[in-house]
């Protein structure tokens, strides 16, 4: 089978019913899609197949023969980050980072498809992705900022509209 992965033509030897996740991780050594549940339940293995987000753990590799597969490695590099990647850094949307690859892939498809900065819409688009660290607020803020066309300073962290600052009486000393 032939795949184009991150713009590079690759020949796949794995048996046809092997999951795309296993092919990417174990045969092609592309490790950003994560085996969080291998049952389609967590979103950490999400990749783009011909531009559309897909669960690589649910996809038999034979079903994507000839397709173009994009993982987060193909969206930007440390020297040339995509806007979604910049937003995730600036808005502190990645914590442990394990769900981040799948979320960035799905968010890229959402924004690329003309998605708005409405957090309800973003939440629906990303509903299949679990993040156990952030509580999602920062993720929604990051994706909304990309959709709005914000620019990002990756050398600093954004303030959050959802932070509540409390002045503690008597704590000045």
């Amino acid at each position: 089978m032939e795949l184009t992965v991150n713009s590079v033509a690759r020949t796949v030897q794995s048996p046809p019913l092997t999951s795309l996740l296993t092919v990417l991780r174990e045969e092609l050594d592309i490790t950003s899609p994560k085996a969080g549940c291998e049952s389609g339940g967590c979103g950490a293995c999400t990749v783009l197949v011909d531009g559309q987000p897909r669960r690589s753990c649910l996809t038999a590799v034979c079903a994507v023969d000839g397709a173009e597969v994009t993982t987060v490695e193909g969206l930007g590099t440390p020297e040339d980050l995509s806007r979604v990647q910049q937003a995730f850094i600036h808005h502190y949307a990645a914590q442990c980072g394990f769900c981040t690859d799948g979320l960035i892939v799905a968010a890229t498809a959402y924004v690329g498809g003309g998605g708005s900065d409405d957090t309800g819409d973003i939440g629906e688009a990303l509903a299949g992705h679990y993040c156990r660290c952030t509580g999602y607020v920062k993720i929604l803020e990051a994706v909304a900022a990309v959709a709005r066309g914000d620019t990002f300073d990756t050398a600093s962290t954004a303030s959050s509209a959802n932070n509540t600052y409390v002045t503690i009486a008597g704590a000045e000393s």
Binding site: L17, T18, S19, E38, G40, C57, L58, T59, A60, A63
Partner: peptide
């Protein structure tokens, strides 16, 4: 494949 592929994996 949403049921079969993970079961197979």
């Amino acid at each position: 494949g949403t049921l079969l592929v993970p079961q197979h994996t």
